[in-house]
């Protein structure tokens, strides 16, 4: 798209674009290129020599059972976070969309958690479920349920899922609510007059009309669960106990920053980049096709 009436200028437009392009070039394209370049190289243990190894880093990553385990764990984690966060947000949005007294107050009270950083959400859950100092953690132990997410891998996974989903609900809520408000009242009223019960109205009218929003949110939630939950995992479990909560992004961090294995870490980064690209492409294609229902 282009305006018909424009200004003339040979240098000015480039000057206006320069800051954005410089930052993008130095901090996005250069490092991304480096990641791709390094993913084909291998350094010896002392960093003295570098050799080109082709796709070997990638093959090593994909053949590594612990990486495959991380990938499986990431799928379980991301799927659970997305389902929990989307499900509860949709439920709450449907309730808040009804004509009831205090609807605005309810909306405000459900929107603010958007401002909570993932890492802070993790800290709040730690205060509740710490086995020694947390209210619920102690309660569980008091009831005879051995609860310590620092020792039990499944409990650790449950904790990071809950904290991550908790933080994401308000974001989904905002979008579902906006989606619900854009559904024409007349359609719903016509269905009601025809005798469709609320549940039927929801599944045959509201839900299909919300599906573009839901799909968009699904992609956003998956990206959130893949990347932004690093803060949750880092502050709550550090990927442990063992590797019980080590997701792919956490592994890039440990392999690159802690273990300084650049080749492997870069290869993993490139795999994740491809994943983001795929998700973004799917999203744009789907949105373009589906948005004018």
């Amino acid at each position: 798209m282009q305006k018909k009436v424009i200004f003339k200028g040979a240098v000015l437009p480039y000057l206006l674009l320069a800051p954005q392009l410089l930052i993008t070039g130095i901090f996005f394209f250069w490092p991304a290129g480096q990641a791709i370049y390094q993913s084909f190289l291998r350094e010896d243990a002392f960093g003295l020599s570098v050799e080109f190894v082709g796709f070997e880093n990638f093959l090593d990553v994909v053949r590594d059972q612990t990486w495959l385990d991380s990938a499986g764990r990431t799928l379980l984690f991301s799927g659970s976070v997305a389902v929990l966060a989307l499900g509860s947000a949709l439920f709450l949005a449907v309730q808040a969309d009804k004509h009831i007294r205090g609807a605005d107050v309810y909306k405000t009270l459900l929107i603010w958690p958007y401002a909570v950083a993932p890492a802070i959400a993790a800290v709040l859950w730690l205060f509740m479920f710490h086995p020694n100092i947390g209210l619920f953690g102690r309660m569980l132990n008091g009831l005879g349920i051995p609860w310590d997410y620092r020792l039990n891998g499944n409990q650790a996974m449950l904790m990071v899922i809950m904290a991550s989903a908790w933080k994401q609900v308000s974001y989904n809520f905002i979008f579902f609510l906006a989606g619900l408000q854009s559904i024409p009242r007349a359609v719903l009223e016509a269905a009601a007059i025809d005798g469709a019960k609320p549940a039927r109205r929801f599944w045959t009218i509201i839900f299909p009309l919300l599906s573009p929003t839901a799909f968009f949110l699904l992609v956003v939630n998956l990206v959130y669960a893949f990347f932004d939950t690093f803060g949750v995992i880092h502050s709550l479990t550090h990927g442990g106990p063992g590797k019980a909560t080590e997701t792919l992004i956490y592994r890039v961090y440990t392999d690159g920053v802690i273990n300084l294995n650049l080749g492997s870490s870069s290869a993993q980064s490139v795999i994740l980049m491809l994943l983001v690209v795929a998700l973004t492409v799917i999203q744009f294609r789907y949105v373009e096709r589906k948005v004018h229902y």
């Binding site: 954005q20 392009l21 993008t24 130095i26 901090f27 996005f28 394209f29 250069w30 490092p31 991304a32 480096q34 990641a35 390094q38 990206v223 990347f227 932004d228 690093f230 992004i249 890039v252 961090y253 690159g256 920053v257 650049l262 870490s265 870069s266 980064s269 994740l272 980049m273 983001v276 690209v277 973004t280």
Partner: peptide, 21 residues
């Protein structure tokens, strides 16, 4: 498009090289 593409490059996937820069 160069600006647009950066949507697909979150910090998290280019940690190590960005750190080197």
């Amino acid at each position: 498009w160069l600006i647009f593409i950066t949507l697909m490059l979150p910090v998290e996937v280019r940690i190590i090289p960005t750190f080197q820069v």
